[in-house]
Amino acid sequence: MWYMILEESHFLKSLYNEIPDLDNVRIEGIYIKEEGRKVTLHFDMPFYAENPPKKWANLGYNSIALQVDFFDIHSLEMKTSSDTYRGNIEITKDEQGLLDINVTGEINAKIKADTGFIQSINGYINEAV
């Protein structure tokens, strides 16, 4: 599963009974940082968690956003066909142990990186849901 090859996935694992695949997710953005050495992927989970923190429930949150940072980028390709970004995100490892990140949908991106970290997991109220 995609989350098992990322660092700092403990909190994410506690939120879900079974962590979903990243199919048809809203992609907030793909950010190139540190002169291309770091790429940040910011996206919503496909559905809300079964085990949210009480604070999130009390605040009426209905969506979860993740920020995942990828470091030591070997390659990056990006193409978009829309001004809104929805797509499927697949994160795997190749034969050399590098992360392969493939985004397909209204935005298409391919990223190859040494490592990936879940930097933040935030609940929020998505008015569109």
Results as ranks from 00 to 15, higher is better:
W2G: 04
Y3F: 15
M4L: 14
L6V: 13
E7S: 12
L12D: 03
L12P: 09
L15N: 08
Y16S: 08
N17C: 10
P20T: 04
D21L: 12
V25E: 01
K33W: 01
E35H: 11
E35Y: 11
G36F: 04
G36R: 03
H42D: 10
M45R: 05
F47R: 13
F47S: 12
N51P: 05
P52V: 13
P52D: 12
P53M: 12
P53G: 12
K55C: 09
W56Y: 15
W56F: 15
A57S: 15
A57N: 10
L59R: 14
G60H: 06
Y61Q: 10
A65P: 03
L66Q: 09
L66S: 05
Q67H: 11
V68M: 07
D69M: 03
I73W: 05
H74C: 02
S81E: 11
D83P: 01
D94W: 09
E95Y: 03
L98E: 05
D100T: 03
I101Q: 04
T104C: 03
G105C: 01
E106C: 02
N108R: 10
A109E: 04
K110G: 02
I111D: 06
G116Q: 04
I118D: 04
S120I: 02
I121V: 15
I125E: 09
N126D: 15
E127A: 11
